[in-house]
Design a protein around this nucleic acid. Structure first.
Length: 472
RNA sequence: GUCCCCAUCGUCUAGCUGGCCUAGGACACCACCCUUUCAAGGUGGCGACACGGGUUCGAAUCCCGUUGGGGACGCCA
């Protein structure tokens, strides 16, 4: 049994797409489960659309997700010698030939075939020529692969079983351009061969490329690898997921406050399941994931479920883990956690009440920055006649507490409620608005403990003064 | 147009080795409980086997057809 070797082979024409990330995830999990090797290859033969920025975005996305690779990244543009060698092998064996057709001729051919309601395909004009034809000759000929004309090819797929394609449906695909550079279907075969890839896991939009590639493997004298074509991810309109459906870049989800493990959890469940279990850790997934259990049908991306999973992972994580991911969001808001309560402690109070890190950062600002104003509705509802006396009472009691902890603070609040003959909410809510500026915060005792005695006393006094000046 | 893939609640899914399915779970939505707030949690509700035919004592499950959806048909990947 040879070692399993898989690969992720993105084209650097943009960011790391959600769909690509899911493909990478399935390959990565399959590899890790079986103790294999995960190869990263950058397919950049499209010189016009590939950019270094896109390469960096892909590498950054992979790193953020934690999808580490064992080999590479290999760049296809650095392997042209290898492709040339294999091209020459096919030419020498008569398995490939030069095609002198002009682009104009091919375009006309395609248009005529479509007018006849036929499948557009190369008509084989140069297939058996010894040299250039007498007319309509391209300046630089391309190289085409000599596809068998009869019979069929079977794709054995780990997810779909055997899928059969008639050779008469295929045509002689271009494997090298006029400038000599190879095209995708050729490079992918050569690379997977030379990199010893044993399992190709990719989107099922490539299922129809596979019969051509199997012919190429066989022409080069090799057995094809195992294939698993995983279903697409669709947008809400049922089409392939794209920008018009919202965020589709992995790093965009990072920026919107998602944890990498939450996104991975969501993506793995979009097509794979393990009974009714919904929440998985990455280590757990490595143990459980089985490529043969991936579903056949495409799934629709649903941000609502992803948000819930993010909430589940936030709640279950160690506070220091969340604190590390939260720090950059506070920095973006001009906040230095060193100037206030320990961020880990803040996270502990907020973990059950935020679906994203963006939300958690926004809701935690008041710990580090005195609110400049009170929410109008919250103030109107909770700052009433009599509130100033309650706040000043609490302020005084807070100042005299022997120790500043949640239990002592809770005692002050319940004592004040008794002293003023009101329910606890009539004390807690004004305190909440006073220190946070809003009607929402963690439990008031924990909130005030974190804020500190000095800052609490100052904010409560300030609010009492505001009430005297603005209420009644 | 040709070929390939696919079809269970609004979304993700369990179930597909016929009987255990008056099809279960999660998310979302609605209601109630808990509760100083927001959440979390608990309980309940709403909600699906695309349609037709066949095989069978019996079909979500097997077969055929229709319908609908996705993909490929680039000198992109």
């Amino acid at each position: 049994m040879t070692m399993i070797r898989t690969r992720f082979a993105p084209s650097p024409t943009g960011y790391l797409h959600i769909g690509g990330a899911r493909t990478a995830l399935y390959s990565w999990l399959h590899t890790r489960r079986h103790g294999g090797r995960f190869v990263l290859r950058i397919e950049d033969t499209d010189r016009e659309r590939s950019t270094p920025e896109a390469v960096n975005a892909i590498l950054e996305g992979m790193a953020w997700l934690g999808l580490d690779y064992d080999e590479g990244p290999f760049y296809q543009t650095e392997r042209y010698d290898r492709y040339r060698q294999h091209l020459q092998t096919l030419l020498d064996a008569g398995q490939a030939y030069y095609c002198y057709c002009t682009k104009d001729r091919l375009e006309r051919l395609r248009t005529e075939q479509q007018a006849r309601k036929e499948k557009p395909r190369y008509d084989g004009r140069c297939r058996d020529l010894d040299g250039p034809p007498s007319e309509e000759v391209a300046d630089e000929p391309v190289i085409r692969f000599r596809t068998p004309l009869e019979g069929h090819v079977v794709v054995e797929d780990a997810i779909r079983g055997k899928v059969q394609f008639l050779n008469s449906e295929l045509d002689d695909l271009v494997i090298a351009r006029g400038d000599g550079s190879p095209t995708y279907n050729f490079t992918v075969v050569v690379d997977d061969l030379e990199m010893g890839v044993t399992d190709v896991i990719r989107g099922d939009d490539h299922l129809n490329n596979t019969p051509r590639q199997i012919h190429l493997y066989q022409a080069l004298g090799f057995e094809p690898p195992r294939f698993a074509h995983v279903p697409m991810i669709l947008g809400e309109d049922g089409k392939r997921l794209s920008k018009r459906h919202g965020s589709v870049s992995v790093l965009q989800y990072r920026d919107e406050g998602y944890l990498p493990e939450a996104l991975l959890n969501y993506l793995v469940r979009l097509g794979w399941s393990h009974g009714d279990q919904e929440v998985f850790g990455v280590d757990e997934l490595i143990q459980l994931f089985d490529i043969n259990e991936v579903n056949h049908s495409a799934s629709t991306f649903n941000p609502s479920k992803l948000q819930w999973l993010n909430q589940q992972h936030i709640m279950r994580a160690e506070p220091n883990h969340i604190a590390r991911h939260l720090g950059p969001f506070l920095a973006e808001r001009g906040v230095d956690p060193a100037e206030g309560p320990a961020l880990e402690a803040v996270v502990r109070t907020q973990q059950e009440r935020a679906k994203t890190l963006v939300e958690m950062a926004d809701n935690s600002l008041f710990f580090y920055r005195r609110p400049e104003a009170y929410e109008e509705k919250a103030a109107r509802k909770n700052f009433k006649e009599g509130t100033a006396e309650i706040l000043e009472h609490c302020q005084h009691c807070f100042s005299g507490l022997p120790s500043w902890d949640a239990e002592s603070i809770h005692g002050v609040v319940t004592e004040a409620a008794e002293a003023f003959d009101v329910k606890m909410g009539k004390v807690a809510q004004p305190l909440r608005v006073a220190v946070s500026g809003s009607a929402v915060s963690p439990p008031i005792d924990a909130t005030l403990e974190l804020l500190g005695r000095e800052e609490t006393v100052a904010r409560v006094g300030q609010a009492a003064e505001w009430v005297r000046q603005n209420v009644g």
